[in-house]
């Protein structure tokens, strides 16, 4: 019985990996224009190397980081609707980045690319982490229940208001740049940004993976987890730091991406039905990559005259999934 089930979850993982592979190929070669992978055409090669490959890698990285964050937040706050976007973490990150882009006037014209990538990433993480810190403080006082989601909505409203203020005082070119960024895109991360993104997502993933066993003990509640040798306080803080880092970097480079972080872990749970969180995390990350690539592929379909912002497609795909999960409970 157990042997059979272990095999089953292995097959599921393999099928998901194949799906991921197919989506990678479609994403790189098919839309919006078809590129023959075997043709020798310098233009195609340039497009592939400088646009398509970075975009695909970015999409996978973002999918992994957001869904891993969503998974950790859902487990920590014991709420299946938690996620970096819903809790206002993404908006915190984007407000911090907005401050940097609009509030620091000469920033956009800095020629030092490394400095630019780093400071955007740091701003995003700091913004994300401060929101997480507020949420954690309040949840420690008032419990983990639905008040958190309301809190997230309110925080998003407040940061939204501050952002409108920034928009209002910004000059038109900055504003256009910033509002495009706010709609989400995987296509703008190249060069140092991309290296930094890959590095941080790798670090974040390993960190998350290590946090999984103690996190799985914490389903028993903090008291019982402590008596099983889990330092719940340290684990909670580590989860917040790790989530802040991952959401921060994802938001800094691609804008606040809606709902992926909330929907994917729920789907992964239904697919894998396991209490082995390390396996579940792997599944969540693969599914996150699939979801992000799917959103990106759909937004680049040639049936639309323009490329849709990622937030449009991600909301349209994830929304119904979340509604289904809500109704099922």
């Amino acid at each position: 019985m157990l042997y059979f089930e272990e095999n089953l979850s292995r097959y599921k993982t393999i099928i998901l990996l194949i799906l991921l592979g197919i989506l990678i190929l479609i994403n790189m070669f098919c839309f919006p224009t078809f590129i023959n992978p075997f043709g020798e055409n310098t233009l195609s090669e340039t497009i592939l190397n400088s646009i398509r490959i970075p975009k695909t890698i970015t999409a996978i990285c973002i999918g992994i980081s957001l869904s891993a964050c969503g998974f950790m937040l859902q487990q920590l706050f014991k709420n299946p609707l938690a996620g970096p976007y819903v809790l206002g973490v993404s908006s915190g990150a984007s407000l911090a980045v907005a401050f940097l882009l609009i509030g620091v006037p000469s920033f956009a014209f800095t020629n030092l690319e490394v400095f630019k990538s780093l400071s955007i990433a740091i701003a995003g993480s700091v913004g994300a982490f401060s929101i997480l810190f507020i949420i954690m403080t309040i949840s420690l006082k008032y419990g983990y229940s639905y008040i958190l989601l309301l809190l997230g909505v309110i925080i998003a409203q407040i940061t939204g208001a501050l952002q409108s203020l920034l928009d209002y005082i910004a000059n038109p070119s900055d504003l256009k740049l910033f509002s495009l960024w706010g709609m989400g895109s995987f296509g703008k991360t190249t060069g140092y940004d991309l290296y930094l993104l890959i590095a941080i997502v790798c670090i974040g993933f390993i960190w998350t993976y290590k946090l999984m066993p103690p996190l799985s003990v914490m389903v028993l509640g903090n008291d019982a987890a402590k008596t099983l040798g889990v330092n719940t306080q340290s684990i909670s803080i580590q989860i917040l730091l790790c989530t802040g880092l991952l959401t921060g970097i994802a938001t800094a480079f691609c804008g606040p991406i809606a709902f992926i972080g909330m929907a994917v872990p729920n789907v992964a749970k239904i697919v894998f039905k396991t209490a082995n969180y390390q396996k579940l995390l792997l599944g969540t990350c693969i599914l996150g990559g699939i979801m992000a690539l799917l959103c990106d592929t759909i937004s680049h379909l040639p049936i639309f005259s323009v490329y849709l912002p990622i937030n449009v497609t991600s909301s349209l795909i994830s929304g119904p999934i979340i509604i289904y999960i809500l109704l099922k409970k």
Binding site: V219, L220, G221, D223, K269, K273
Partner: peptide
Amino acid sequence: NTHKLSDEYI
């Protein structure tokens, strides 16, 4: 203790 679990797939 008498804590309830929130996770269903355990």
